[in-house]
Amino acid sequence: MTESMIEGIFDIIVIVLLIVGTFFIFSATIGVIRFPDIYTRLHASTKAATLGISGILIGAFIFLFVEHEIVSGKLILGIVFVLLTAPVSAHMIGRAAHSSGVEVWTKDGEQRDEYANDKQ
C-alpha cells in the first residue's frame, strides 16, 4: 500500500464522520420542530445532538492527527463534557417542565403519568 492510498483512506473516514455528525444534528433540529411536546423534544435534542457533536469532534481529531500530527486533547475533552452535561440538563429541563404542570402528550389522549399519580 502506498502512502497516498493510506492518506486517501483517512480522508474518507474523516468525510464520513463529518457527514454522519452533521446528519444527526440536522435530524435533531427537525425532531425539535416535529415532535408534539417538550418531553419528546428533549429526546431529540439530547440524544441526536450528542452523537452528532461526538462525530464531528472525532472527525476533527483524526484530521488534525493525520494532516498536522497534532494530538488535540481538547477535542476529546469536548466529547467527554458533552456526554456528561447533556443528560443532566435534559433531566433538569424535564423536571422543571413537570413541576410547572406540562402534561404528557399521548396519541389516544389518555394520560399515563405515574409520577403525577405518586406526587399526589
Binding site: L42, K47, P87, V88, H91, G94, R95, H98, Y115
Partner: peptide, 13 residues
C-alpha cells in the same frame, strides 16, 4: 445519565 442517552427513555425525576 445512562438512561437518558439510551433508546426511547429519558429520566424526568
Amino acid at each position: 445519565s445512562l438512561i437518558s442517552l439510551t433508546p426511547g427513555t429519558l429520566s424526568v425525576a
